[in-house]
Design a protein around this nucleic acid. Structure first.
Lengths: 131, 131
DNA sequence: TCCTAAATGCGAATGATTATCATTTACACC
DNA sequence: GGTGTAAATGATAATCATTCGCATTTAGGA
């Protein structure tokens, strides 16, 4: 049996986000889903992303070039943002030392932390050389 | 002697940003400067912030609640963002281990890195208790 | 079948940021 | 002092991502 029609779109949004590593924007997700759900509204994507975020099912990486980017992987990990192509990459094998969390606890109650490196990714560097 | 009239506003914007620790938005700066420069335009604040950012004189912390926040302190340091009052605090004595930078160099050419903790600040916690 | 609440599509509204353009200012040169 | 030119500014319109309002659709139970 297939999922109920009512939640097909909601699930599709979450699945889309979880099955990509591009750390997409709402609009990117909307574009992807049009293939399967030709009538899906951009508002629905925004609405559900907000809902997922509230519930902690997904995570916001903040905005890149004025557009919010999301991550379906809620395991804490580090990101690399390329200022040239606006791509976001996961940095495996790099982690925020746990002891930092404790050091911060004097300032308030920490819910999450985010470490982001910014620069030019290898792919953009290579493209620049050949150009 | 005073600075030339031409650059008084530009300097005022940078000075304003450098002499506060609230990590302000463009609009906050605009409000502050109205006292000394009653005719300053919000566009001028935005324009100069963009210029400063390009030149590396200031740093953007990304957006909090949809508004970009800036920091006149370009020394790398860690931030705490309160989800309750949208305040941004400096975390002194906490730093990103240098070895991480090197670990990331395989992915691209790193220009900067940003570590941000999110949660509820002590002040908001206290206010909640007494309320 | 009937009812209610949630989910959606559509389009308008919002609001931060940016672009446009006429005006003002600084500064070098005469 | 004028004159010319380029940068800076103010005012306001435009842009664009995001949110809101509302009518419609759907699910699921009585």
């Amino acid at each position: 049996m297939e999922a109920t029609k009512h939640f097909r779109k909601r699930d599709a949004i979450l699945n889309c986000l979880r099955s990509t590593d591009v750390h997409p924007s709402a609009e990117w997700i909307h574009e992807q889903l049009k293939a399967e759900h030709s009538d899906i509204s951009l508002a629905t994507v925004y609405r559900n992303l907000a809902r997922f975020k509230e519930r902690g099912d997904i995570v916001s990486l903040g905005t890149v070039n004025g557009v919010e980017r999301f991550d379906g992987n809620t395991n804490p990990h580090v990101h690399f943002i390329c200022t040239s192509c606006s791509g976001v990459l996961d940095l495996h094998g790099v982690a925020v030392p746990q002891e930092l969390n404790e050091r911060v606890s004097g300032t308030g109650q920490v819910n999450s932390c985010q470490l982001t490196f910014t620069g030019k990714c290898n792919q953009c560097i290579k493209q620049e050389e050949t150009a």
